[in-house]
Lab assay of single mutants.
Amino acid sequence: MSIQHFRVALIPFFAAFCLPVFAHPETLVKVKDAEDQLGARVGYIELDLNSGKILESFRPEERFPMMSTFKVLLCGAVLSRVDAGQEQLGRRIHYSQNDLVEYSPVTEKHLTDGMTVRELCSAAITMSDNTAANLLLTTIGGPKELTAFLHNMGDHVTRLDRWEPELNEAIPNDERDTTMPAAMATTLRKLLTGELLTLASRQQLIDWMEADKVAGPLLRSALPAGWFIADKSGAGERGSRGIIAALGPDGKPSRIVVIYTTGSQATMDERNRQIAEIGASLIKHW
């Protein structure tokens, strides 16, 4: 067993022997301040990774656009098919120029040779490549099948209805392509620590998230040296922004954090800054 596999296998073990965790309302004060600064709703939840206990939450059962955070769930569904012998990570998928959609920095470079399922998941999570996500959605049967996968996990809230990039439209009061912070946090925890996926697939999923290259201005910008984070960000229309993450000190994750916002007129930089400040408060009061 590799060191990384050992780390993920012992996530519940280490967490069980940690000192009790206590909620700190100071972080919620910052979440509410972010709402004021952005002029928009902000949803927040913080779960203990081992027990699933909610440590703090704000608007945990209000719907927010998922945006690209759905790509972690998508690759979880792909990995479940791999575990069941219905898919192979090494299978190569070929596609054409007509398949390319807006923001496809990886797939646009491989029109000639195609990409493997493993490479597509890596591109979808680490670079948020939209064509990679659409190609992977095709392998599982489309958005409705991802929703069905989530329902089978016990998540009857999260739903995907459309493809990239239309799913980022974020129309107010439109339930399409949305989740709730509580539902997303619980589902992410199941994917990373539950028995739904094999140990190898859980490790692969967290490795992809740990290698995320496009979430630097968010929670990662607030992390002290030595902290662990595996995350996936999302951005959408109407001032929408979000991030889902597993993080913790001492090089291992111990909490799940989900943050979503929508309806702001603020710039992307300002949305990023507010999420980073929430992260800084979380870490300060850990």
Rank of each mutant, 00 (worst) to 15 (best):
G239S: 08
L197W: 10
A34P: 03
T187M: 13
D129Y: 01
D99S: 11
N272L: 02
T267S: 08
K109E: 08
G236S: 08
Q37M: 06
V42F: 07
R63E: 04
D83E: 14
Y103G: 08
F149R: 15
E169R: 06
N168L: 08
V258S: 06
A246T: 08
L205S: 02
E46H: 10
G90N: 08
L38D: 07
Y260H: 01
V101L: 08
I54R: 13
P165W: 12
I256V: 10
D36F: 15
L137C: 06
E119F: 02
A211M: 15
W286E: 03
E195V: 03
P217D: 15
A185Q: 00
P249V: 07
I125H: 03
N134L: 02
I244A: 10
E35Y: 02
T138N: 15
V214L: 14
T262D: 06
S51E: 11
R63Q: 12
Q97L: 08
L146T: 04
L89T: 09
M209C: 13
M268Y: 09
A148H: 06
L137Q: 04
S96G: 09
K30N: 03
M209L: 11
G76M: 05
S254V: 06
A123F: 03
D155G: 01
A276W: 04
D99Y: 09
G279V: 06
P65A: 11
E62L: 04
K144L: 08
S128E: 01
L73V: 13
T178L: 03
I54D: 10
P25G: 11
K232Q: 01
D113F: 05
S221T: 09
D36V: 15
M268T: 13
N168S: 05
L28P: 05
T198S: 07
P253V: 05
F228W: 10
K109S: 13
L282P: 01
K252V: 11
L191I: 08
Y103R: 10
I229N: 03
G242C: 03
A235N: 04
E175K: 13
W163Y: 12
T27C: 15
T112G: 15
G154T: 04
S51T: 10
F149M: 15
S221K: 03
K144F: 05
N98M: 05
P181E: 00
V31W: 02
F70E: 02
L73Q: 13
V257W: 02
D36Q: 15
L188V: 04
N152L: 14
K71E: 00
Q203R: 04
I54K: 13
T178I: 05
A84R: 13
L100M: 15
D99P: 09
G251K: 13
E237A: 12
I244T: 11
A123S: 09
A200P: 11
A280F: 11
M153Y: 04
Q88P: 08
Q97F: 10
V82A: 12
S51C: 05
M115P: 02
V42M: 09
V101G: 06
L120W: 01
I54E: 10
T107H: 02
G43S: 07
G154M: 14
P60H: 06
D250P: 04
K144P: 06
K32G: 12
G43R: 00
E164D: 02
K32N: 07
G236V: 02
D36M: 15
D33N: 04
M66D: 00
K190H: 08
L218W: 02
D207F: 06
D161C: 13
L167N: 06
T107I: 14
T139P: 12
A182L: 14
A280I: 05
H285L: 10
E277T: 11
N272H: 05
A148Q: 05
A77G: 05
R202F: 14
W208Y: 11
L55W: 14
A222N: 05
A40C: 07
A215D: 02
I259P: 00
Y260G: 00
G279Y: 05
Q204I: 08
L136H: 01
L136F: 01
D212V: 05
P143S: 10
R189A: 13
A84I: 14
T116Y: 09
D83S: 09
T116S: 07
V78S: 06
K284G: 11
Y260P: 01
N134H: 10
T267M: 11
G114Y: 09
I259D: 00
A225S: 13
Q97N: 09
W163N: 09
E145F: 08
T107N: 09
K109A: 11
K30R: 08
T193N: 12
F70L: 11
S264E: 04
A266P: 06
I93D: 02
P105L: 08
E61N: 13
R189S: 07
A133G: 10
S128K: 01
D207L: 09
G216Y: 11
F70I: 15
N98L: 12
M127Y: 06
Q88N: 12
K190S: 09
K284N: 07
S96E: 11
Y44D: 01
L38Y: 14
L205W: 05
C121K: 00
Q37L: 09
H110T: 12
L111R: 11
E26K: 10
G43Q: 01
T262N: 04
L89Y: 08
L160T: 15
M184R: 00
P105Q: 07
L218Q: 03
M66P: 01
P172S: 06
Q88V: 11
V258A: 04
L111A: 11
C121A: 05
I243M: 14
A34S: 09
L100F: 03
E119H: 14
L136W: 00
T112Q: 07
A280W: 14
K144W: 07
R159K: 15
V101Q: 06
M127P: 02
G236F: 01
R271P: 12
L73F: 14
I256M: 12
E175V: 07
D161I: 09
V117R: 02
N50Y: 05
G52E: 12
T158M: 03
K232D: 00
G85L: 10
G226P: 04
V157H: 14
N98C: 05
P217T: 13
H110Y: 15
I275C: 14
S51F: 15
D36G: 15
